[in-house]
Design a protein around this nucleic acid. Structure first.
Lengths: 179, 179
DNA sequence: GGCTACATGTAATGCGTTACATGATTTC
DNA sequence: GAAATCATGTAACGCATTACATGTAGCC
């Protein structure tokens, strides 16, 4: 059983009822470290979950804004979520373009390799800043397990940024002929 | 342009001609850190690449073994690969079941959380051992950029393992009431 | 006047997974 | 005798992505 939008949505709805729009917002916060999904995955996922009886829709009419569809989890949904948590932990899956480029970058010059690594460093630092903000802003109200998850995310981006910096140093030393 | 089986296969074939079976083997080695794919993705991918003129098939008849289909990259394929490398670096994508469980694990007991983290530690250590073996065995023959990629992979698994250990310590201190 | 936030969805397409299907040879 | 390695593929299905499509309200 792998991590998919379905379970993340269900887990969010187990805290409180939400709209698709709000779920997507959550995907962009602390969750963005371990999962990401677009509207194109959120709405179809909700539709399926509703069809399966895992969630229920309630339409909230608004005059000044577009109407909302608010979903709440059902007992069946809670059961599906519980079954997910009973499964063995699935290994993390990583897809890394930068590593692909490092691995196969024999035809790229050192300048290009360096440029790629700097792009990657920028990406990790942006995410780091985001997670750090969340951490600083909500540390005190956040349930302890959420803090644990954030810790892992912070570690990941720090570790990858540092690994890139280390690689740049390695490149430098290669250039100086210290093979 | 995201990292997909297509580009990994093309990059492997840019080094030397290979069969689908060999490509799958490569997926299980150092590449496994940044990409993974099953036979069900390898063979259809090769078929598509051939249809697009990016690779060429040569059947090698063997008497004692099943026949092989060996693929080599064409100029068109080299061009497609070069275009891939010209794109901006795509951010790494991570999907982490363990972080999902930490984030939403409010209903799980501390024992369960700990058990999950230990599973995760085991997974990272297994990968670590594999990459470390590759590193030790081929460090001297390996091109420098492949070494860089391995460095990043090692860092990742070490970092995640250590983050899990840190989380276990945090759990302990929560338990002792040091909120 | 333009951008952002709010709010929902569909259609086409692509990519990948799992399971199925086969079968010889070599090694323990 | 059993298991692993070599070797190739298909079919069904599921999940996700991208782009499209629409429209208001409030802020700068």
């Amino acid at each position: 059983m792998q991590l998919q939008a379905k379970y993340v949505a269900l887990a969010l709805l187990s805290k409180r009822p939400m709209t698709g729009y709000e779920i997507k917002k959550e995907f962009e916060g602390a969750i963005s470290f371990f999962f990401d999904g677009s509207y194109g995955s959120v709405y179809p996922t909700l539709k399926n979950l509703e069809k399966e009886g895992c969630i229920e829709k309630r339409t909230i009419v608004q005059q000044d804004r577009p109407n909302k569809n608010e979903f709440s989890i059902t007992d069946a949904g809670r059961e599906v979520l519980a079954q997910y948590f009973e499964q063995p932990v699935d290994a993390d899956s990583v897809r890394s373009d930068i590593c692909m480029r490092l691995f196969f970058g024999d035809k790229a010059g050192d300048g290009e390799l360096r440029n790629w690594m700097e792009q990657s460093i920028g990406q990790h630092e942006a995410k780091l800043a985001k997670l750090q903000n969340l951490h600083d802003a909500y540390r005190l109200q956040m349930p302890k397990h959420q803090l644990l998850s954030l810790t892992v995310g912070l570690q990941y981006h720090k570790g990858q940024r540092d690994a890139m910096l280390e690689c740049i140093r390695m490149l430098d030393s290669f250039e100086r002929g210290e093979q």
